[in-house]
Design a protein around this nucleic acid. Structure first.
Lengths: 235, 235
DNA sequence: TTTTTTAACTTGTATTTACAAGTTGAGTTG
DNA sequence: CAACTCAACTTGTAAATACAAGTTAAAAAA
């Protein structure tokens, strides 16, 4: 029995209202007491929900004033895009699936330590190439453990966020994670993939995302062309 | 009057005990109820303190089991505001002050937008070079607004964390921030500074840290030699 | 009119109490 | 002896309440 918690419900509602523009960027959310009254909750519960939004960077809180709606990053609290010239709307972001999700065995050498459950169940592998303004900037290789994800290999991923699909269809939520960043000289394959000039370095990211499903982590290796764009993160 | 909050006190104590090895990595912290009894607090307060430690990645919590002390990340943590020095063993990190704090005017072009107050008060400039295992890894250029910081230009910074000094002497705490990351080819100056082989790229970070003092932000530009180490962040 | 004070908000911290849910190991049962 | 049950832990969620502290704007005073 999956009980839906109250603070979780409020969190979802507010999140949706922020992303759909009911509460506009820069404006104030209803006060905690108002939210209490509206949703019939007590303040600790409301605050718990707001804390989650703060953690994700959806809102900023200021004592004595209120909760300010922030520009919502596409991926919660992780790393989102920002152009050097101007902010990039999600509209200009396009995704190509180079390798549809398929079941494989885990690689021999892997940058993160795997649990027994993960190693035993095998992994789902997929590759994506992402474009900003028709130019490839983002090449990522993803490994997910082959649990919970029934029929994922037959799903269409075109222009859909992986996280969105995991959340909607499998109730998997990203709780947090860790990542290692480096500047490296790309090999020939990466260079061609990202249309890189010779000698241009790339940003290399290895990350592990933990989820609400115990033992289910998402592992990604990312190559990022940082010539015209930068990786942007807020915390 | 600066009141020290209870949850903050417990947080500091536990943090120190973890970093100094009183609680060893992989072991369990005392249970929440034990902490309540030991420090004469109620559970919400204890949980507030533990939440801060979870946020920093110092501990992991598991329902039904307890709070597990996490292994301190091997790599240099910078994405989390817990501090650049705290993540890696402090023993191996050494700091050279290349440019002692001095009062300047703000640069003409600046990667972040400045408030009127910041621009009017001028800035304090300093440069540091940081070593891991006797090898330069980190070159950073810092701009702080010239407010609140009386006599900072005459302070000794050798081997002391900038954040530590700001916290201890000026009651300034880092609340959060944002940063832009790129992989770049270093210029000659940076290359010599970080003992870089020709053609080796560096990680370039521009970041703005916000503090508890309104209108007081810390701006840093960082060049990082990612040949042997990686920037590490957890969230 | 301008300045100051105050009152009415806001979020932040803290206590107390209660029950739900996951984990573990000792004890019971087969 | 092995498998199961259950009690005694643990953390997670939630309520109701109180006061502290920061912000804002209206009211009062100069």
């Amino acid at each position: 029995m999956e009980q839906v918690h109250q603070y979780r419900k409020l969190y979802e509602v507010l999140r949706k209202h922020i992303t759909t523009g009911v509460y506009k960027e820069g404006s104030l959310l209803p006060s905690e007491n108002e939210l209490c009254a509206t949703y019939s909750m007590t303040r600790p519960t409301v605050r718990h929900a707001l804390d989650s939004l703060v953690k994700e960077g959806m809102i900023l809180k200021q004592q004595g004033k209120g909760s300010i709606v922030r520009k919502a990053p596409q991926n919660i609290g992780i790393l989102s895009f920002s152009g050097t010239a101007s902010a990039i709307g999600v509209r200009y972001l396009q995704t190509d699936i180079l390798q549809k999700p398929e079941i494989r065995t885990w690689p021999e050498v892997f940058p993160f330590e795997l649990s027994k459950l993960e190693r035993e169940s095998g992994c789902i592998y997929m590759e994506r190439l992402r474009f900003v303004d028709e130019i490839p900037v983002f090449y990522d290789v993803n490994h997910l453990p082959n649990i919970y994800l029934t029929r994922i290999t037959s799903r269409s991923f075109e222009n859909k966020s992986l996280f969105e699909i995991l959340r909607k269809h499998y109730q998997i939520e990203i709780l947090g994670g860790e990542q290692k960043l480096k500047a490296i000289k790309p090999d020939e394959k990466i260079r061609q993939m990202l249309w890189l000039q010779p000698d241009l370095p790339v940003l290399h990211i290895e990350r592990k995302l933990t989820t609400n499903k115990a033992g289910f982590n998402i592992y990604s290796t990312i190559y990022f062309n940082s010539e015209k764009h930068a990786i942007f993160g807020s915390f």
